[in-house]
């Protein structure tokens, strides 16, 4: 098997004149958690639907688990869509078992597996309840379990955390981590950067259907200069002379932001403050967050898309 579970090459999807996805290429290595990030309307769901073979790309090629179409390997793929719903009159276990059988499991094995998963993720008491009687969070959990009942090699989760309370978000993270521990590949889309930051090995950021970044979370962080935020009543202008400092901006209220050159150590700035001296009230040398990266990458575009 190729080390890439999923490969997109120059994939484009047009709806009349509107380019939902524009020449998108990406590669998801086996065994990793791959974040599919982008603002609303960026083309994430359309891309996922093309990956799954639900929609056909206008141009470009997609290879999933080595097959040219997901339909050929659908039994090895698990999918949780963005908009979640269940058959209201069916029981929790039977929904999970039904989707398991659609993915190739035998009836008895699917039923056994449904009860096993419900027990493992704290829904044992609701196994025989009709899904209409479940809370939103429970229903969503049942749907996630339905998407992984057949123990797929590749799991696609579209906005798996949306609508969940913090406790259930934790459970969802646990499910994703479990999948990775068992060597499964997970691709999940989100626009909540904290989840991506905690879970993802690699991310792709898309906006207006185009990939803006594809790589590790670390590489993404390096996309924007490292910053140090300090507070002082003194004038910190002498810091500008330091070789590690690229720029210095006043933020207001005695606060300053020091932009560092790539590969430099924030300790050099701290040392210079003591030597100069610049008397510090606070010194914050946190790494740039994925949120900062995301805002920098898609910033104004995202705003446009969300009001489109």
């Amino acid at each position: 098997m190729s080390s890439a579970v999923l490969e997109l090459r120059g994939v484009t999807k047009l709806y009349d004149d509107f380019r939902a996805v524009d020449d998108l290429s990406l590669s998801v290595p086996a065994g990793c958690i791959y974040g599919f990030l982008g603002p609303n309307g960026a083309g994430k769901t359309t891309t996922i639907r093309m990956i799954l073979g639900i929609l056909k790309p206008t141009s470009g090629s997609i290879s999933v688990l080595g097959a040219p179409s997901a339909m050929g390997v659908r039994a090895r793929i698990g999918y949780l869509p963005e908009e979640k719903g269940l058959y209201k009159k069916m029981r929790a276990w039977s929904v999970i078992a039904y989707f398991g059988t659609l993915k190739g499991m035998g009836r008895a094995a699917a039923k056994r597996r449904a009860f096993e998963l419900l027990e493992r993720y704290g829904l044992k008491d609701f196994a025989t309840a009709r899904t209409e009687a479940l809370s939103k969070g429970m229903g969503q959990k049942v749907q996630v379990l339905a998407s992984i009942a057949h123990d797929p090699e590749f799991v696609i989760l579209d906005e798996p955390f949306s609508g969940l309370d913090p406790v259930n978000q934790g459970v969802m993270e646990e499910i994703v981590m479990d999948l990775r521990r068992r060597g499964r590949t997970v691709l999940f889309s989100t626009h909540v950067m904290q989840h991506a930051e905690r879970l993802c090995d690699r991310i792709v950021v898309i906006a207006k259907g185009r990939a803006l970044f594809d790589g590790t979370v670390g590489a993404a962080r390096r996309l924007i200069p490292r910053r140090v935020r300090l507070a002082t009543a003194d004038d910190p202008s002498p810091l500008r002379a330091l070789p590690s400092v690229a720029a210095l901006h006043a933020v207001g209220g005695g606060q300053w932001e020091v932009e560092l050159r790539e590969g430099t150590d924030p300790q050099a700035v701290l040392r210079a403050c003591f030597e100069t001296p610049v008397r510090l009230r606070s010194f914050d040398a946190a790494e740039p967050s994925l949120h900062d990266v995301f805002v920098k990458l898609v910033g104004s575009g995202a705003r446009e898309a969300s009001f489109r």
Binding site: L52, R74, L80, L86, K88
Partner: peptide, 17 residues
């Protein structure tokens, strides 16, 4: 209509044509 309004259809279509 139930499958469409409950958005089950998308999961189904990832499993069946």
């Amino acid at each position: 209509i139930e499958e469409k309004s409950n958005r089950i259809i998308e999961v189904l279509l990832s499993s069946v044509t």
